[in-house]
């Protein structure tokens, strides 16, 4: 019997079903942040683009959205995810030992669109754990370095103990073709680096504003201040991109939790042009 009223949808794999992965490496970044390298035990997830996230499942505990922090040019199907302990699920995920299993779905959401900066300057500003989704963007730019003019990374944290990717940062700083500024909000006397907000080096960096693409990720207050500064310097709001975060239960636009005004951040974000984000970030408790 056929009906006119009812639609018929093609059967597809369940987007809510996590794909099993095994932890093959566990790197402690800071006292509360760990990077896991996850190898699929069966078929791998589709390749990710810098800025996208996955839903990671700690079996029996729960599922949370986590940005992919790995190398987008790698083809081994291994997921690299940097996770800060903020609750029960992230505690279980970061506590998963090498050989342990987790689930992953995705990748989901919008990307930084690093190639759109080709021919111009690329600026990345990351605060704290906000470096995690920026790392793939930087790795992608460095893999195609000749396409970009200046590549500038401004990386900050509350204090030296909260800086992630320390080894990698040291390597980036030795390169002549990328300008790396590392600052911390506060530090003891043994910190040899700069003590400042990330806005300070950002204000000093040589840029050609009209040909700059800036990618920002970190606390919302940092994002707002850095964006304001870049706009002040003449970077168009459409070329400033920010990665935003809200509660997510599904990652695929069905649970409603990640709304920020008109945006469903799992679908229309996490990477959003500042021109679209600014009106939403200006309203309290939106």
């Amino acid at each position: 019997m056929t009906t006119a009223a009812a639609p018929t949808h093609a059967r597809r794999p369940d987007p809510m079903t996590p794909v099993p992965h095994r932890v093959i490496e566990r790197r402690r970044e800071t006292h509360d942040t760990v990077t896991l390298r996850l190898a699929p035990t069966g078929s791998a997830l589709p390749p990710f683009r810098p800025g996208q996230f996955t839903m990671l499942l700690a079996p029996g505990v729960g599922e949370v959205p986590i940005s992919v922090s790995g190398d987008p040019t790698a083809t081994d199907g291994v997921l690299e995810q940097t996770i800060r302990v903020v609750g029960a699920v992230t505690r279980a995920l970061t506590g998963t030992p090498v050989g342990g299993v987790v689930g992953a779905r995705g990748p989901y959401g919008t990307e930084w669109d690093v190639p759109s900066a080709r021919g111009g300057d690329l600026v990345l500003v990351g605060g704290g754990c906000g470096l995690a989704p920026l790392r793939p963007a930087l790795l992608e730019a460095l893999a195609h370095r000749a396409h970009y003019r200046r590549v500038v990374a401004v990386l900050g944290a509350r204090d030296p103990e909260n800086l992630v990717f320390a080894d990698q940062m040291a390597r980036w700083r030795r390169r002549a073709d990328v300008e790396v500024h590392v600052t911390v909000d506060r530090a003891g006397p043994d910190w040899p680096g700069r003590v400042d907000l990330v806005t300070a080096p950002l204000a000093e960096t040589a840029l050609e504003p009209a040909r700059t693409v800036a990618l920002l990720c970190g606390p919302e207050v940092m994002i707002r201040r850095c964006a304001a500064l870049l706009l002040d310097r003449g970077v168009p709001a459409t070329r400033v991109r920010v990665s935003l975060e809200r509660n997510m239960k599904c990652g695929i636009g069905h649970c409603g939790h990640c709304q920020l005004g008109p945006l469903l951040l799992c679908r229309d974000g996490p990477v959003v042009p500042y021109s679209a984000a600014a009106p939403q970030l200006a309203v309290r408790e939106l």
Binding site: P7, H9, R11, R12, D14, P15, M16, I252, G253, H254, R267
Partner: peptide
């Protein structure tokens, strides 16, 4: 059901 990931 109308988006990229229809809920099965």
């Amino acid at each position: 059901a109308g988006g990229r990931y229809p809920d099965p």
